[in-house]
Design a protein around this nucleic acid. Structure first.
Lengths: 221, 221
DNA sequence: TCCTGTGAATGAATTCACAGCG
DNA sequence: CGCTGTGAATTCATTCACAGGA
């Protein structure tokens, strides 16, 4: 067995940022980048970049920097996007259908292979004019997961039913959920959840805007 | 001047979670909640909840808990959502139009009052069947911001033009941007940016799924 | 007893500073 | 000289543990 080195979760978050920037650098024809260059591009100190990348073992060359291609490959392997993941979108509302049509997923290792909803009026209709997918009923989730070998779900259902549907999804064999419902999901170990709450992000934004303006929103007088 | 107590940024992020849960508790008719109750509901330790809320000054009552209504009001004031914010969506693609129709913003203090795009073929068409808004040209952003008193923008444009459009937006008087483009934005002090990168969230999810499975993606052998 | 508020202790993450290699 | 890798120092965040009020 290998050494039980744990990569800090904060590092993992930044790896995605590095990857995004590295792909850009690669596209520009760069074969090597320095920690300073990479850090500046994503708004992180050079020391931090070096610490993060050092978890991979000695990868960089003093005086030269890090090899772009190798680094991309290595980060992808860590994050798990060196392989392809099939994804089902659960909830065919505006957001769900928009995400189904979103181009940013394919090419990043994610294939949206199904969209389902509980609304019978939607079942059988095309997800979007451009998409080849048809909306399927939630009852078929289990068989979809099996036959299409789906491991991830994107949850875009109302908050009031998010927990129930998440339970169903895990029951059907889904291993990880990206949750857009504004609700805290409970789940057992062995399953994973990441959440994105749009209203919550907006609140963080207004806080920062206020902090920036002359009247900071202080805590206590 | 008041004491220069700084609320930690980690606490600010959790305030939004607390707020979401408190609104739920209020809806259930609860007039008071304990730190334990609140913490369990959002997956955070009770000690953490107390530390966070203590920044507001002594708010809770020993033996009883925290008053739900007062706490909601107080958190809203801190986050800045005790008032209403007018928002423009820039980029009328699938995601932009979906967010324009998303119901989760109104009622949380955010009013989407305009949508614009650079594509002339879209200008003048309705944002969505249900929406009363029409897509307007990006050139009108400046006057829109002025006449409608808009302070926030949601950016849903391709990554390749995100920086340019963000600069334009700030130039037009926007104070904060919620950025959905997969790009790191540069901006001057006095402006604010929050970013949501969907592919990045999916990568975090796959990492966790792999960590949960039997073959953890270790760093170094 | 149930619960808050908070110093003290612990743990995690970031920055510093520099040795050493190409 | 430019740049990496890394211990040491520092800052930040979380948890512990308990005094004291209702």
């Amino acid at each position: 067995m290998a050494k039980p080195i744990e990569i800090p979760s904060a590092t993992i978050q930044r790896l995605s940022l590095y990857l995004r920037q590295l792909l850009l650098s690669q596209q520009q024809g760069l074969r090597t980048v320095s920690s300073r260059h990479l850090g500046d591009a994503v708004g992180i100190s050079d020391a931090q970049v070096r610490k993060d990348l050092a978890y991979f073992g000695p990868f960089g060359h003093p005086g030269i920097g890090y090899p772009v291609g190798d680094l991309i490959e290595r980060i992808r392997r860590i994050l798990g996007t060196d392989r392809n993941w099939r994804v089902v979108i659960i909830g065919a509302g505006n957001l769900g259908r928009a995400l189904a049509a979103y181009g940013g997923f394919s090419g990043q290792g994610f294939d949206i292979v199904a969209v389902c909803d509980i609304d019978l009026a939607k079942v059988g209709t095309p997800v979007s004019p451009v998409s080849k997918l048809q909306i399927q009923h939630l009852d078929e989730l289990s068989s979809l997961v099996q036959t299409l070998d789906i491991r991830l779900a994107i949850l875009t259902v109302p908050a009031s039913v998010a927990q129930i549907v998440a339970d169903q999804a895990f029951q059907a064999g889904i291993q990880g959920i990206l949750n857009f419902a504004p609700a805290t999901l409970n789940y057992s170990t062995g399953h994973s959840v990441c959440s994105v709450d749009l209203a919550l992000e907006m609140q963080q934004l207004t806080y920062r805007v206020l902090s920036n303006s002359n009247q900071p929103n202080t805590a206590i007088s």
